[in-house]
């Protein structure tokens, strides 16, 4: 009757000190994060775990929205691959988004995010799929020619090995040249939000 995986997930805040040692968060930040986690994880089913619907609800404030990227982010957070997030998974993943997290972790996470098929490289077709999804989400309409030109230009710059794909090394060099591409990998908000001054 029961999903055994549900019971393997740790529930509750068991060892904030350990989690603080293994992430960039302080113990009080972990505790503040746990309060947020409790709120998100009780939005649909109050089971101390975040499912995809609850994650989307917290992101978009509606569960009606379909988003390729919200799915990708959820799947990357879900390191146990069981379709639900325990607090540890949630805290470890968000740690990468902390302003003090190492840049290499942010580069790695963003690469995995865009490597839709998890092949170890980002291919042109994946970039097109993501551009089209982004445009559709925002209701922006661009002709296929314009989309192709944007992608051509991006590959001209990023694909320095000229093999039609962007590998991790090329990705790293691209984002180091254009730090704005990693802008959404840092939540300044996270630092402010978890500070004791936050009301």
């Amino acid at each position: 009757c029961c999903d055994l995986d549900l019971y393997k997930q740790s529930r509750g805040l068991e060892d904030p000190e350990l989690l603080a040692r293994e992430t960039v968060f302080s113990v009080s930040e972990i505790e503040a994060l746990y309060e947020l986690f409790k709120k998100i994880s009780s939005a649909v089913i109050d089971d101390g775990l975040i499912n995809k619907e609850e994650f989307q609800l917290a992101l978009f404030k509606t569960n009606k929205k379909e988003s390729l990227f919200a799915d990708r982010v959820f799947d990357l957070f879900d390191t146990k691959h069981n379709g639900i997030l325990g607090f540890e998974e949630f805290a470890r993943a968000l740690s990468v988004f902390h302003p003090n997290a190492p840049i290499d972790d942010k580069i790695e996470f963003s690469f995995q995010l865009y490597d839709l098929k998890q092949q170890g490289f980002i291919e042109r077709q994946e970039v097109k799929q993501m551009v089209v999804a982004t445009l559709a989400e925002s209701g922006m309409n661009l002709s296929d020619d314009v989309i192709e030109s944007i992608i051509d230009k991006t590959f001209e710059e990023a694909d320095t090995k000229h093999d039609g794909k962007i590998d991790k090394e090329e990705w790293r060099s691209l984002v180091l040249r254009h730090p704005s591409l990693l802008k959404n990998m840092t939540l300044q908000y996270l630092k402010k939000w978890t500070s004791p001054l936050h009301s």
Partner: peptide
Amino acid sequence: MAPVTMNAFELISTSQGLNLSSLFEK
């Protein structure tokens, strides 16, 4: 309107699904 000179990843990074700060908003 996205200019053709825009990097595709710049455009992608504007997606609402990648804006995790909204997790912290009520």
